[in-house]
Every structure is written in C-alpha cells, then in structure tokens.
C-alpha cells in the first residue's frame, strides 16, 4: 500500500486530493478489523505512540487510543488538564521530555492554534493534530469524509451545509477544506457574529440564512454551540439561538430527500439540534463515531515510518 510522504498531519490544508483519497481508502480497508473476533492487526507493533492531550477530551482520545490498540502500538497517555503555561513547564520542554522517550508518533490536542506546528518543527516523531484551538481537526474531517462517502457513495457534487458556530470551530475549517477539495459544494451558515472574516476563501459559500443553507443539502453538519466557552456575547441566549438556527424536523424539509444529519459531538440537545432529529433515521452521528476509529487507524498507519522526515510548513 502507498504511504503519505508527510512527516506530520497538521491539517487537511496540507493534503492533496489523492492523499485524502488514499487515507479514506485505507480507512475503508481497516474498518473490517472492527468486525473481526480478534480486533487487532500487527501494523504498528513495536511502535510507540504518545497521546498528548492539553484539553479535556473523551471521545477523540478514546477513539485514538482504540485505533492505536487495534494497530498493536505501545501507548503512552499524557494528559495535562491545564495549559503548559500555567503548569510552569513550557510546551517545548514537555515535548523534549517526551522526545527523549523515542516515540514514533505524538498525537496532540491543544487549546492554542499552531501548537502541533511548534512540536512538528522541534520533534523527530510524527505529529498528528487531534485539534488545535480554532484551527484544524483533520482526523474529524477525515472521519466525516469517510462517513459521507460510505453512505452517499461519493463526495463530488454533494451539497454540504455546515451550520452553527463556524468562528470557533476547528471542525468547520477542516471539513470545509476537505469537502470543497473533494469537489463537494460547501455552504457554511450561522449568525453574522459567528462567521469569520473572508471564510469564503477556504472554499465555501457563507450565508446567515438557514433556509438558504438547507436548501437542497445532501449533508447537514451541525456544529456544537459552545455557549459556555464564550465569555463574549455572540448571541443573546441559547434559547434565541435555538429558535433561529436550531435544526428541527420542520426545517429538515428544506433539505434534499434522504439528506443525512451529522454532528461532531457532544451534542447539545435542544440547542443546535432537536432531540427528535438527533435520534431520527437521518442522523448518522453514531456512524461518525465508528468511522472515527478507522480513519485514525488509517492516519496512524500511513504516517508510521515517516518520523524524521523534513517537517513541512503549514501552508
């Protein structure tokens, strides 16, 4: 099987169409491991993977951990609930300490955009970005791509609506780049306070009108509204947000017949998505979770052996 020529996976931005296809194909092939009685392949036997999580995360971390275990890697979990700064040790010092343990891959989740890039420049190990600030969350986009491709059979030509807090969402950025690069038509939507400047240049249409975004959509991706994290007021209340941008059964009628609903989770029932919709047949939220393991296995597998390559720039 071919491999990726990158040392690190810092964002979807760095991936070509062919490379995205390769990862999705690999993920599809690896997905059957989950159906085996012994859910394990020896692909990463003898390799060490560090999971370095500076932000609390249950789903992404468990997903990576399971992916690593199914590939037979040795795992070291290193979580710091606080940022490196408040801990007194800098991110780089932490990285150098880990590097001394000769890991092959470091999976990092960090609250600051660019933290994986800093590590990528300084560490020999391959770096996988598991979410950096408001920047990118590439493995989420890959699992989203895998989910859509599996259900719809293709990505090209689909209409994808991404709705919600686009400004603070790394998922929105990675998804926008991935889907538009693969030939889908991406439309992002949210209140004007949550659409960042010049977002169109990422390859998406932007609109503040929910009906316009939903019109004829094949895929509706709802973003989590992080009301608790925003000490600034981007909208008056969760209640008003739900009434203006919440996904309801009623509003689903504008979408194409057979449209699917996705969400990176964890969902806020009754805010960005009505319970009825979240639990309806059109919802593929749990498929996303299952595909997450396969997509991450593919990335780990394709990057293993790339440690020590020259680090690339982000853009």
């Amino acid at each position: 099987m071919a491999s990726l020529r990158h040392k690190d996976l810092l964002g979807i931005e760095q991936l070509s169409v062919g490379e995205i296809q390769l990862i999705l194909d690999t993920a599809e092939a690896l997905r059957e491991v989950a159906a085996r009685p012994v859910k394990k392949v020896p692909a990463l036997r003898g390799k060490t993977v560090v999971n370095l999580f500076f932000e609390p995360s249950t789903r992404t971390r468990s997903s990576f951990e399971l992916a690593e275990k199914r590939l037979s890697a040795d795992i070291l979990n290193f979580s710091a609930s606080t940022s490196s700064v408040t801990k007194g040790e800098t991110l780089l010092d932490t990285a150098y300490n880990l590097e001394a343990m000769s890991p092959d891959i470091i999976v990092i989740r960090h609250g600051s955009a660019g933290a994986p890039h800093l590590l990528g420049r300084k560490c020999k190990a391959s770096i996988i970005n598991a979410g950096d600030g408001m920047h990118e969350h590439p493995t989420q986009a890959l699992l989203d791509g895998l989910t859509v491709r599996t259900i719809k059979g293709r990505l090209e030509g689909l209409k994808i609506a991404i709705i919600g807090d686009v400004a603070h969402s790394r998922v929105a950025r990675s998804d926008t780049i991935l889907f538009s690069r693969m030939g889908a038509e991406v439309c992002v939507c949210g209140p004007p306070t949550l659409i960042p400047w010049e977002y169109e240049k990422l390859g998406a249409k932007t609109t503040i009108c929910l009906e316009e975004a939903m019109d004829g959509a094949d895929v509706i991706m709802m973003l989590r509204v992080q009301h608790e994290r925003q000490n600034e007021a981007f909208f008056p209340s969760a209640r008003e947000y739900a009434s203006l941008y919440g996904l309801t059964r009623e509003r689903m009628r504008a979408a194409k017949k057979g449209a699917i609903v996705m969400h990176p989770g964890p969902i806020n029932r009754g805010v960005e998505i009505e319970s009825e919709v979240a639990d309806a047949g059109c919802s593929v939220i749990l498929d996303q979770v299952a595909n997450g393991i396969a997509a991450r296995m593919a990335v780990l597998y394709l990057l293993s052996g790339n440690a020590g390559l020259t680090p690339e720039k982000s853009r």
């Binding site: 920047h135 990118e136 010049e198």
Partner: peptide, 12 residues
Amino acid sequence: EGYYSTVLGLRG
C-alpha cells in the same frame, strides 16, 4: 483579524 486569522484559527 482577516483571512489569516480565519485560516490559522487565531483570534483576530
């Protein structure tokens, strides 16, 4: 605040 703050995910 502009295109680069958006693509880099940094506060503008």
